[in-house]
Design a binder for these strands. Structure first.
Length: 311
DNA sequence: AAGGCGGTCAACCGCCGGGAT
DNA sequence: CATCCCGGCGGTTGACCGCCT
């Protein structure tokens, strides 16, 4: 039971918008701007729900929207960001000027996820499907852990750790390869730089707080040094974001990848906490920086056309 | 020609978080 | 502090279209 509907459904028109309705909405927004959408229908002379008006405007009528097909570069970016962020379409869309979250979501659901699947890549985890099947088989026969999940000398490791984001290109290409040494060094350098910016009173967030089951344990075991900083409680939102990018992306990637596993929820909650750590989080900026740094994604191939999954 | 089928995408729905009161 | 309202988000639906049989 959610909130009551925002509109009187009996007096609200639904369905496709007509050119006349578009014109009314455009005329109103061009003179009055956006905001207070609940009053917009009445003032614009529309028999629509305010939410519907907002959606129509943001997804279709808003200036500077791109209506043409997605480019190869945009596809690459979506795949990369989806690997980093999961289905946070608004964040992904923020990195694609002129695209809406609805655009990106639809494009992902109808095109990109299929492309990945055809390439043998699981679109949720961004791992090779064959790899996942092996992992599932290993999980099925693995005995329960004998040690607490945070034991440092854990002999308990999955057959294949969940993926690191810097592997995304490799996954997308279907060729899983380890990062080159200089790539790893550069990743660590970024972590160090981000960590150096940590505030004097860091937010107390621990990855372990979000651990709930095996999947999260696997993710933690696969984490890098940067994630260890998170585990030690010296959390800083940007550092944590970097930790997730470099070592803890498995949490993001695992989110939603299984049917309701608690670890997936934990990973998602962890990311939520990161994103909630203040308006100045700089997540967008961090994403932009990471994307601008070719070292993160420089693999054996540099574009998805080379990946071989062009149209 | 017509019906079935799958793909695409605009739009809706319900939930959530944040600000206002 | 509690409640209400609004905007935003992600998931889902359904209309439309083109292709195939």
């Amino acid at each position: 039971m959610g909130r009551p509907p925002c509109c009187d459904k009996a007096n609200v028109k639904k369905g496709p918008w007509t050119p006349e309705e578009d014109a009314k909405l455009l005329a109103y927004t061009s003179t009055h701007g956006t905001g207070n959408w609940t009053n917009v229908p009445q003032r614009a002379g529309l028999k629509r729900c305010g939410k519907s008006c907002r959606l129509r405007y943001t997804n279709y009528l808003r200036p500077n929207l791109k209506h043409e097909n997605f480019t190869q570069e945009e596809e690459d970016l979506i795949v990369t960001l989806h690997a980093m962020l999961g289905s946070r379409w608004s964040l992904i869309a923020n990195q694609l000027p002129g695209r809406t979250d609805n655009d990106v979501k639809n494009y992902w659901n109808t095109k990109l996820s299929k492309k990945l699947r055809q390439r043998g890549i699981d679109p949720i985890t961004h791992r090779p499907i064959a790899d996942l099947m092996n992992s599932i088989g290993a999980l099925a026969i693995r005995p329960p852990p004998q040690q607490p999940p945070h034991a440092s000398s854990s002999s308990y490791l999955p057959a294949t750790a969940l993926p690191l984001v810097h592997d995304v290109k490799y996954h997308a290409s279907g060729i899983l390869q380890p990062p080159l040494p200089h790539q790893h060094q550069q990743q660590q350098a970024v972590i160090a730089r981000v960590d150096a910016d940590a505030p004097a009173s860091p937010v107390e967030l621990k990855w372990s707080d979000f651990l709930a089951d095996d999947a999260a344990v696997v993710a933690a075991a696969a984490a890098s040094e940067a994630q260890q900083q998170v585990l030690s409680g010296q959390y800083h939102h940007e550092a944590a974001a970097a930790a997730n990018v470099v070592g803890g992306s498995s949490g993001i990637l695992a989110a939603g990848s299984s049917s309701g596993g608690g670890g997936d929820d934990g990973a998602a909650a962890f990311i939520d906490a990161i994103l909630d750590c203040g308006k100045e989080t700089g997540v967008d900026q961090l994403i932009a920086e990471l994307l601008a740094d070719p070292a993160y994604y420089a693999g054996s191939c540099s574009s998805s056309s080379e990946m071989g999954w062009g149209c």
